[in-house]
């Protein structure tokens, strides 16, 4: 045993813990987290305030122009879309690239912590925070949209509308996780903050648009419904049916698709038109998803983004692990 000559005690412990990673993550990202948090709290506060007032008064206080609660709610439903992008571009894209650019990865990875442990710490801590923010945002918006729908004869936010569908907390959480993973992957691969941010933003919106516009209507085979023209025309706009009509067309008695104005062109009134259509045996063929599919679809969309996120996280980790240069 050698006697130590150091007067001050040397702190020794067995490993670097989560508390230490939490300290580092908070110290490095506190302003980003606080800034995003403030925006989330503002949106949640506004949404819940409007929801409470709508519930209490049974009215959405529509003023002249667009700025009633419905209009404001429509604006707020953009927040979730924007939130995922904010996580992707401002939280994740600089996460590794800024370290590479300022060479500070060499500092932090030269301590008693491996790059993968460091990265895991950051991803878990920032991920949990981002997902919690996203879910909170979603819950508040769902509450607001429900309250508004409640007091309107014709609900302005039908369940399958983009705003309603995407406000679901689990869907929001999926977008946030995907955003984080996407930004991180570009951050690891490009090692440059600005290109990583740009690519992340572009790919985030392309992916979101593709899933929402191109894929979501076909998560399951839509149900086919054929109804006589008269029945169809009576149901339009009543809002009773909460199902999601993906597509529809007019068909003649033989079932062939026809264009709207190919038949019954020489009529003078709506009544005459309907009668003519019925007499000609015109049907309306529609493809739709019943309301029962709403929650499964939302979970499926969450799953899609969760799988994408998992793949991108794996890519980022492998990329960092197998780095060919420092």
């Amino acid at each position: 045993m050698t006697a130590t000559t150091t007067a001050a005690p040397v702190a020794t412990r067995s490993h670097v813990g989560w508390g230490d990673l939490l300290w580092l993550t908070w110290r490095q990202h506190r302003w980003t987290i606080l800034g995003t948090g403030a925006l989330v709290v503002a949106v949640v506060g506004l949404a819940l305030g409007m929801a409470w007032h709508t519930d209490a008064t049974g009215d959405t206080h529509e003023l002249l122009g667009e700025w009633g609660y419905i209009g404001t709610a429509q604006m707020l439903t953009f927040a979730p879309t924007v939130f995922g992008a904010v996580i992707a571009v401002f939280w994740a894209a600089p996460l590794l690239s800024r370290e590479y650019e300022q060479r500070t990865h060499l500092v932090v990875w030269s301590q008693d912590i491996t790059p993968l442990r460091w990265l895991t710490g950051k991803v878990v801590l920032l991920g949990v925070t981002a997902v919690a923010f996203a879910a909170g945002l979603g819950l508040a918006l769902v509450k607001l949209l429900n309250s508004i729908n409640e007091v309107n004869v014709q609900p302005p936010f039908p369940p399958f509308s983009t705003s309603s569908f995407e406000a679901a907390p689990q869907v929001q959480a999926g977008y946030a996780a995907f955003g984080l993973a996407l930004g991180l992957a570009f951050s690891a691969v490009t090692r440059r903050t600005v290109p990583a941010m740009g690519l992340t933003l572009g790919v985030f919106f392309v992916t979101r648009s593709f899933v929402a516009g191109g894929w979501r209507p076909y998560f399951l085979e839509p149900l086919r419904k054929v109804e006589p023209y008269g029945v169809f025309s009576m149901s339009v706009g009543t809002g009773d049916d909460q199902s999601w009509r993906v597509k529809g067309y007019l068909a003649d008695a033989a079932g062939n698709q026809i264009r709207n104005f190919d038949v019954c062109t020489d009529v003078n009134s709506h009544v005459e038109y309907t009668k003519c259509m019925n007499d000609s045996g015109i049907h309306y063929v529609s493809y739709h998803h019943p309301i029962e599919r709403l929650v499964p679809f939302q979970w499926f969309e969450t799953g899609v983004f969760a799988v994408l996120a998992a793949g991108l996280f794996a890519l980022a980790f492998v990329w960092v692990r197998r780095a060919r240069r420092v």
Binding site: A8, V10, A11, R13, H15, V16, L24, V108, Q111, D112
Partner: peptide
């Protein structure tokens, strides 16, 4: 925080 031995 990030080392198992630290001599402040």
């Amino acid at each position: 925080r990030l080392n198992v031995v630290w001599d402040e």
